[in-house]
Amino acid sequence: VKKMAKAIMADPNKADEVYKKWADKGYTLTQMSNFLKSKTAGKYDRVYNGYVIHLD
């Protein structure tokens, strides 16, 4: 998940494709939050927020 999150950060155009894969795998927002937690607070906030919007 972190590898794909980094791919989104490097190229935001990949976001919809990645979010669809995550949704197809049934990842919940709680799971995504836990996967994307980082020592650098807020590092993956943009990715998480994008997934929230995708699921909505």
Rank of each mutant, 00 (worst) to 15 (best):
L29I: 10
A5F: 04
Y48T: 03
A7E: 13
N13E: 12
M4V: 04
Y19S: 01
G50C: 08
N34H: 14
R46K: 15
K20Q: 12
D24H: 10
M32E: 01
K3M: 13
K43N: 05
T28M: 01
Y51V: 02
D11H: 08
K43W: 08
Y51C: 02
H54F: 15
V47L: 03
M32Q: 01
A10L: 12
Q31C: 08
Y51T: 03
G42Q: 04
N13M: 12
K20H: 09
Y48N: 02
T40L: 08
F35T: 02
K25N: 12
W22D: 00
D11K: 06
V52T: 05
K6V: 07
K25L: 15
Y19H: 03
A5P: 01
S38V: 07
D11P: 03
T30A: 13
A23W: 07
T28I: 04
G42D: 07
T30G: 11
V52C: 09
M4S: 08
D45A: 11
V1D: 02
T40C: 10
Y19P: 00
M32S: 00
V18C: 06
M4K: 05
D56G: 14
K21C: 15
Y48P: 00
H54C: 05
V1W: 04
S38Y: 08
K14I: 15
Y27N: 00
K20Y: 07
R46L: 14
D16W: 11
Y19C: 04
D56K: 15
M9C: 09
K39W: 08
A10Q: 11
S38H: 08
E17D: 10
V1C: 09
L29T: 09
T28Y: 02
Y51W: 04
A41W: 10
G26I: 04
S33H: 12
A23I: 05
W22K: 01
M4P: 03
A5N: 02
Y44Q: 01
V18T: 09
Y51E: 00
D16T: 14
G26S: 05
I8W: 01
L36F: 04
N34K: 13
I8V: 12
K2V: 10
Y48R: 00
K39H: 12
Y51P: 03
K37S: 12
K43G: 05
Q31S: 06
T40M: 09
A7T: 09
D16A: 14
A15K: 06
S38R: 04
N49R: 11
M4C: 11
D45I: 07
Q31N: 05
G50R: 02
D56W: 14
D56A: 15
Y27S: 01
L55H: 02
N13S: 15
S33A: 15
G42Y: 06
L29C: 06
Y48K: 04
Q31M: 14
D24E: 15
K3G: 08
R46H: 13
A23N: 06
A23T: 08
L36C: 04
I8G: 02
Y44G: 03
V47D: 01
Q31G: 02
M4Q: 14
A23S: 12
K14N: 09
N49H: 12
S38F: 07
V52E: 10
D45K: 07
A15T: 06
A5T: 03
Y19W: 03
G50T: 02
N34P: 00
K3T: 10
L29S: 08
Y48E: 02
K3L: 11
D11Q: 07
F35W: 15
V52D: 04
E17S: 11
E17G: 10
V1A: 05
K2F: 04
D24M: 12
N34Y: 13
D45E: 09
A41G: 09
M4A: 10
T30D: 14
K2G: 02
Y48D: 01
S33L: 13
T40V: 11
G42K: 06
V18I: 15
T40K: 12
L55K: 01
N49C: 14
A7S: 11
V52I: 10
K37V: 08
V1Y: 04
Y48M: 11
G50F: 07
R46G: 13
A7W: 10
Y48G: 01
V18R: 01
D24A: 14
D24I: 09
I53W: 09
E17N: 08
L55I: 08
D24K: 11
K43V: 07
Q31A: 08
K6C: 12
N49A: 14
N49D: 14
L29D: 04
K14T: 09
Y44H: 01
R46W: 15
A10S: 11
V47M: 03
N49V: 11
S33I: 10
I53L: 14
Q31K: 05
E17M: 10
D11N: 12
N13T: 15
K2S: 03
G50Q: 05
L36Q: 01
D16K: 11
K2P: 02
A10V: 10
F35Q: 04
D16P: 14
Y27Q: 01
A5L: 07
S38K: 04
Y44F: 09
M32W: 02
F35S: 02
I8E: 01
K21F: 15
A10M: 13
G42I: 04
W22H: 00
K21V: 13
S33F: 14
V52M: 13
G42E: 06
K6Y: 07
K39R: 11
D11R: 05
A7P: 02
K3C: 14
V1F: 08
K21I: 15
N49I: 12
Y44V: 00
Y51Q: 01
I8M: 07
A15H: 05
E17I: 09
A7M: 15
Y27P: 00
A15P: 02
A5Q: 03
K21M: 15
M32H: 01
M4D: 15
F35P: 00
W22Y: 02
F35E: 04
A5W: 04
D11F: 07
T28F: 00
S33P: 02
A15N: 03
I53D: 11
A41I: 12
P12Q: 08
Y44M: 01
G26L: 05
A15C: 06
A10W: 09
N34E: 15
G26C: 08
V47Y: 06
A23G: 04
T40E: 11
